[in-house]
Design a protein around this nucleic acid. Sequence first.
RNA 1: GCGCCUGUAGCUCAGCUGGAUAGAGCAACUGCCUUCUAAGCAGUGGGUCAGGAGUUCGAAUCUCUUCAGGCGCGCCA
Length: 580
Amino acid sequence: MIEAVNKQIKLFLTSIEGSSNDSTQAILNKFTTSISEDLKNGHLTTNVCMVAASILRLNPKELAENLEKSLKKLNKFKKVEVAGPGFVNITLHREDFVSIIKEIMKLEEDFGKSDIGNKKRVQIEFVSANPTGPLHVGHGRGAAYGDAIGRILKSTGHYVEKEYYINDAGRQIDILTASVLLKIIQKEINDFFPQNAYKGTYIELIGKDFLQNNKIKYNDIGILTKNLASDPEKEIDQIIVNLKEMDIEIWNLAKAFSLKSIIDSIKSDLKEFNVNFDNWFEESSLGSLESPVSEITKSINKLKQDEEAYEKDGAIWLNTDSSGDDKHRVLIRDDGRATYFASDVAYHKNKVDRGFDSLINVWGADHHGYIKRIEASIEALGSSKEILKVKLVQFANLFKSGKKVKMSTRSGEFFTLRDLIGDIGTDAARFYYLSKQADQHLDFDLDLAKSDSKENIFYYIQYAHARIFSLEKKFKETHSNLKMNIDSIKNNGYKKCDVLIHEISKYPNIINKSSRTLQPHIIIFYLRDLSQLFHSYYNDNHVLSESEENIQSIIFCLSAVKQTIANGLKVLGITPMQKM
RNA sequence: GCGCCUGUAGCUCAGCUGGAUAGAGCAACUGCCUUCUAAGCAGUGGGUCAGGAGUUCGAAUCUCUUCAGGCGCGCCA
């Protein structure tokens, strides 16, 4: 029906005196015809006259009156009227209004899906936490967000690949390895443990596991802690060098073992959190500067060749002017080692080369200063920075018993994603992570997420779904004589269901908007509104005592509501509950 | 100092490509369970949309500015 209205609007616009092709196009790009916010404004509403008025400098109300006449001539609608400052509101014929119910019954879980993405190839990189410890609650938010937008984009006709970038190269992995080894031999070195090593019981556990199949025997262990620098950064680097010298074989074994055990635990946490990646991309696969054919070497060579990178003060720098970054950035340090940024440049080149139409990076908000240099590198390597969208995810503060849960890094103990899942479950955790715009601070109340009050929106929505599920079950028992047939129901049998029908009609547009803006939270707010309308209906109407004449229509309508709630939850990666 | 984000009811937040009387939940107060799950529903009160200026027929929404808060500004990752 919206298409029919828009077709007529197009004709109407070209007939306006003084309009040009350009102005008409501008109006067409800007106006909307949509399901009205509120039934009192009819079923459909369009703001085209107000948009046209501001572009053509005409009176919106006059335009609206003309459009009204033009739409009435079509003879397709029950009522067309001008309202407010120049809206044109349309009331559909009964048959058209309720047709959504049959549509949903037919489409089932496909209701809300669309092809607006035109099969665009989108890659989403998210979480990508360093494999030096377990995922914490901050990573959880990025995981929930990245996975949700992946599902949303997929359901709106995009081809989506989800990827985790594993920083498995570089100094931090050496620090991890050293931490594990030092824990194992801690007693032999008088409980010495450097300030900058990783702490936490997980380090000890990895050490114990490692000893199951390996033996460690250092000959002159005293060397390890001799003449260490007082600067903690230098101290840990010296220890790494010493450990390697003392037994390179053990070092390599411990390194591989530690890395694998942490990556495995990250993978299993994410799996439990219902987050699945298509690719796990290892930083080490980009190779090193020592190899002339590695991706990292090749991308730097290309930058040098194109004079985008240059040497200064013994280091190699990237010119980042194209993105308006504050300063140029170092790719290779004056001691010849590549920076973390150099790997990232090669990694993004790799992504671009894989032929995606769009790249989405989900980053912690503290990385926002990093965006411009990556954009500059993409430009420098000959692509447009428009291909990359960086979505920033703010920190989440956890509250328990009204108190902020401290994220202590000093002791190495912190509230992990696994702890959170154990506490409130995957679905509730995902739900609350997604309940607010990703780029804003989130106060995550653990007590609320477990409470059984209306304030707990997660259960409020699930309760609506479960109530309908149970109604359907009861209905089958009490009305086993009735044969349910969607084509034989009466359009006037949807007693008092109109607000529900109107609300579920909005769903496809909610999904599209969520996809366009990459904002899952609007689906949550929509589901809450829909649930509230249902609970209200449920309280006022005793469904199972409705007449046989109407009850089929009503049950179909409520099933459509249930389907809509289920689809909305599923696209967020949350499982709808059938009973509570 | 520079850059990014935020400021809406007592609290937690929607609304922001300008549009219909600024919404919801909680908290406060009042009602509704002999009938389909009360983890529910109905109602009342509560707002200079941080302050100021501008653009517009129209501003919570756009621009400028002031104030307040958060984050980022390494040859760290």
